[in-house]
């Protein structure tokens, strides 16, 4: 049943153009990141000819600083906006009740959406990573695979959490707007909690800054076990509670 439902998601993404939007965003920023890293300093220099700004020469690390920044900002927003309506808009539109009335297990329905979204995003991220790596290597031959790859894997863990938060918000809210409210409320609270040093190691919101630390210096999986385990646990709680809530909800 889950694969049949995922097939419908796939058709939906193709037919509504969501597939192309996401594909474009991932590919565009994957290629753009190493290019901006390489040419931005020169570009800034050329703008200010009177005063001489000293811009440090770009390194291969800057490609992945850019990549990580783009993933955490624009790609993040696009993914959240595309996925946030997945359950909520079907409730709002009435197709959720139609499917539920067919006797489809509602929890499986939510899982199939989540599974589709995570597989789809990971596929996109993989493509984006290899593209970014290819261009980085082209522009900066000394680019190191292990660090670049590890930081992207860390982002994938963070993305996993963001997608569970998205499907959770979508399962609870009855419209895109409500779901967006729930999503950003939790997102902001977690970011505020991140200021507290005692909570910090367990907070998924530390992952992007760890990623930046890695890119700036070196990979340290050992120190990152705590936030990874708590992120995965929190993600599982979100997806299961979202599905359980939706199972009982009136449609």
């Amino acid at each position: 049943m889950v694969t049949k439902l995922m097939k419908k998601e796939w058709n939906e993404y193709l037919k509504t153009g969501k597939f192309y939007i996401l594909l474009f965003v991932f590919i565009f920023f994957a290629i753009l990141s190493p290019i901006t890293a390489k040419f931005m300093p020169e570009f800034i220099k050329s703008l200010s000819q009177e005063i001489t700004i000293t811009v440090p020469p770009p390194t291969w690390r800057d490609s992945f600083v850019q990549f990580s920044k783009n993933l955490n900002q624009i790609v993040f927003i696009v993914i959240v906006l595309v996925f946030l309506g997945s359950v909520a808009e079907e409730k709002n539109h009435g197709t959720a009740s139609l499917v539920a009335a067919k006797g489809i297990d509602r929890r499986k329905w939510v899982f199939s959406k989540f599974l589709f979204q995570i597989l789809f995003s990971l596929a996109m991220l993989t493509i984006a990573f290899f593209l970014c790596f290819y261009y980085a290597k082209l522009l900066f031959p000394e680019t190191q695979f292990y660090l670049a790859f590890s930081s992207t894997v860390l982002f994938a863990v963070y993305l996993f959490f963001i997608l569970t938060l998205t499907i959770f918000s979508s399962s609870i809210g009855n419209s895109m707007l409500q779901s967006a409210g729930i999503f950003f409320a939790i997102f902001i609270i977690l970011n505020i909690l991140n200021i507290i040093p005692q909570v910090n190691p367990y907070n998924p919101m530390t992952l992007p800054s760890i990623e930046n630390q890695w890119i700036a210096s070196k990979v340290a999986w050992g120190n990152t076990i705590k936030p990874i385990i708590s992120t995965v646990l929190l993600s599982l709680i979100l997806i299961f509670s979202g599905a359980a809530y939706f199972h009982k909800q009136e449609l």
């Binding site: 058709n11 939906e12 037919k15 539109h93 009435g94 197709t95 139609l98 009335a101 067919k102």
Partner: peptide
């Protein structure tokens, strides 16, 4: 089941 206001996946 036929709902009162039938709504289906518009993209199909």
């Amino acid at each position: 089941f036929l709902p009162e206001v039938p709504s289906f996946y518009n993209f199909f």
